[in-house]
């Protein structure tokens, strides 16, 4: 399969998801998902809103427990770890939340310093240097004194990104990094994801429904819908795909395998029924 990604897949993937099942109440979110995240690459996981992309990241991070199947990160079974070991594993993963999730009562500087102060006993002078270095990467060294409420959406995400790399993780999980950004900060974030992946030697997982931006930086793409992986491959392979689901998602067609109408009874019959809804 897929000449371009074959080599990366041959080495042991950093994240290996097998037969993942997960449900919210009676609603099945994942129904047997297999995903491999190769090391050192940008892997995109795409799908319509509400398919469970955020849920998938929380399953990888061990915040949620699957009903079945397994998630291995760097060889460790995430859901079999003790709390202590899980926390140690998490120190090696950065997660960029959709909202940024900056601590609102701390300045940008203190937010980036937060994981360092919690997990290391470094002297304050060293912490300062490390924080400024991380802020320099995302271009916010000058904004260190600002509070999260004073940041624009794009700046908040970049500050959160600086915090996510504070402990030099092996992997970053991005939850919808481009959603709701103006074209300029979108471009900045797209560039940053790729740059950090390559310059810092990270593994990146980008969860997104922004087709063009995500395909432009991803090495490998999974398309998830209805609880399953419906397509996988390089961006070029996905673009060339004839599968109706892939075409509908990539081209943003309103109707197709994913119907425009929420399931309903017959329209004509519905109109003819008298009385109430």
């Amino acid at each position: 399969m897929r000449a371009g990604t074959e080599q990366a897949m041959a080495a042991e993937p950093l994240v290996r998801i097998r037969g993942l099942h997960f449900a919210r109440g009676s609603r099945t979110i994942f129904d047997g998902v297999d995903i491999d995240i190769p090391r050192g690459r940008v892997t995109a996981i795409m799908g319509p809103s509400g398919t469970g992309k955020t849920t998938l990241l929380k399953l990888i991070g061990g915040q949620l427990r699957p009903a079945g199947g397994s998630v291995h990160v760097d060889g460790e079974d995430v859901h079999a770890l003790s709390r202590r070991r899980l926390f140690r594993l998490r120190q090696r993963m950065g997660m960029l939340f959709q909202s940024g999730a900056l601590l609102t009562d701390l300045s940008v500087f203190d937010n980036v310093a937060f994981p360092l102060r919690e997990h290391t006993r470094l002297p304050e002078s060293l912490i300062r240097q490390m924080v400024l270095m991380k802020l320099q990467v995302v271009g916010l060294r000058g904004a260190r004194a600002l509070m999260p409420a004073e940041l624009s959406g794009g700046m908040a995400r970049r500050a959160a990104l600086a915090r996510a790399i504070a402990l030099d993780p092996m992997m970053i999980l991005y939850d919808e990094p481009f959603t709701g950004q103006d074209p300029i900060s979108m471009g900045v974030l797209v560039k940053l994801v790729r740059l950090m992946n390559d310059a810092l030697g990270l593994t990146s997982v980008v969860v997104s429904h922004d087709v063009a931006e995500t395909l432009s930086i991803a090495d490998h793409v999974y398309l998830v819908a209805d609880g399953r992986v419906v397509a996988a491959g390089s961006p070029a392979e996905l673009r060339a795909s004839e599968a109706p689901r892939v075409r509908q998602f990539l081209e943003g067609l309103p109707d197709g395998p994913v119907p425009f109408h929420y399931p309903a009874q017959d329209y004509a019959e519905d109109l003819l029924v008298d009385g109430h809804a």
Partner: peptide, 8 residues
């Protein structure tokens, strides 16, 4: 949630 993911 963010704190938990930072292992705090």
């Amino acid at each position: 949630s963010g704190m938990e993911m930072m292992a705090v």
